[in-house]
């Protein structure tokens, strides 16, 4: 007979594991991946493969040679980081090598420098993405025109993104804005993984059903962005007006709330990046505050900031206050 095992109670476990959670997130990203490849062609697939492969490679190298600890690449967290990083960049030829640098920053600086999975204060994929955005502003904002992409062609015709159009404030931009249906399915310009709201929502529903995420962060994030932009839009809806400074015709006012939440990275950010367990608050009340902050900051950055898109910055900023939120938002004690 075997030796008897002895431990304190409990003697059973729910069978949940970090590995399962991470691979569920990966599975939930597949619909967005497929839609991205369908619209942006083989270059999107290449960006994804390169990003994921380099994330795994860097994590393995760092664990093996720098930290000298057993490798944890099997837990799938590097794959999540790789996929999210790839989703956040344009599917262009120059990204094939730039994304490798992003992966190094994401894994090396964003995660392993803090001690690996679970100890990073910021979402690693966003650290990588923001690093690239600041270091390679031209390449990172050169978007392929989705209507002119050839599936197997690597060189692309560039086109605008909806948020870029609004930021330019050109009088003719309003007419070029995509239809709601195109924004839902993802037939718009932008980072190839975040274009399709429907594909992202399918993944998010899967994560909700498997209890990997709770509804609190996505709902409060998207809800806040919707309500805040609705207020702005009601006060001053978008229109073509004359700029009193130089007398030229320009876009004025604020974009409508539906376009706000369907363009840019709000859907992907709210469902997959703000909900990253490591960098978001643990208590439900804290999660609501976190989502509220993300939504508010996103709309502020979009309307008054230098960048057309603010989801990455908003989430990173809220990541930095997560420890404070955790300290403040305690669960309700049973016996007090």
């Amino acid at each position: 007979m075997n030796l008897l095992n002895i431990s304190g109670s409990p003697h059973v476990h729910s069978d949940e594991s970090t590995k399962k959670i991470m691979w569920r997130v990966n599975l939930a990203l597949v619909p967005a991946l497929l839609v991205g490849i369908a619209y942006f062609g083989v270059s999107a697939l290449l960006v994804a493969c390169i990003s994921v492969a380099s994330c795994i490679l860097f994590q393995w190298l760092i664990e093996k040679f720098l930290l000298k600890v057993p490798s944890t690449i099997g837990d799938g967290s590097a794959v999540v980081t790789g996929l999210l990083l790839a989703f956040n960049v344009p599917a262009t030829l120059s990204m094939m090598w730039i994304v490798v640098i992003g992966a190094l920053v994401a894994i090396g600086v964003g995660k392993m420098a803090f001690g690996g999975l679970g100890k990073n204060p910021f979402n690693p994929a966003l650290v990588g993405r923001v690093f690239l955005l600041i270091s390679f502003p031209v390449q990172m904002t050169t978007w392929p025109d989705v209507s002119k992409v050839k599936f197997f062609g690597l060189d692309t015709v560039t086109g605008p993104t909806p948020l870029g159009l609004i930021k330019e404030r050109g009088a003719e931009s309003l007419g070029k804005m995509p239809q709601i249906w195109d924004m839902l399915t993802g037939y718009i310009g932008g980072s190839w993984g975040e274009v399709s709201a429907i594909a992202i929502l399918v993944g998010a529903i899967y994560l909700l059903c498997t209890k990997v995420i709770s509804w609190h962060i996505p709902v409060s994030f998207i809800g806040t962005a919707f309500v805040f932009s609705a207020i702005l839009w009601l006060v001053n809806p978008i229109h073509v007006g004359v700029d009193p400074a130089d007398g030229a015709e320009k876009l004025m006012g604020f974009i409508d709330p539906l376009t706000t939440i369907l363009t840019g990275g709000i859907m992907l950010g709210a469902c997959f990046m703000a909900t990253d367990m490591v960098t978001s608050p643990m208590a439900r009340s804290g999660q609501l505050i976190f989502g509220f902050g993300c939504g508010l900051l996103t709309v502020i950055i979009r309307n008054w900031g230098a960048y057309p898109e603010g989801v990455s910055f908003a989430i990173l900023l809220m990541n930095s206050v997560t420890p404070l939120i955790n300290r403040w938002c305690k669960p309700k004690r049973f016996a007090c």
């Binding site: 476990h13 949940e16 970090t18 367990m277 669960p331 004690r333």
Partner: peptide
């Protein structure tokens, strides 16, 4: 009976949400 090896805490908060006494 065997417990699985311990890995890093990913701060998911599942312990907190499962606690019937509202502890952390």
């Amino acid at each position: 009976a065997r417990r699985n090896p311990e890995t890093a805490c990913i701060r998911c908060g599942k312990c907190m949400n499962a606690c019937p006494m509202g502890l952390e």
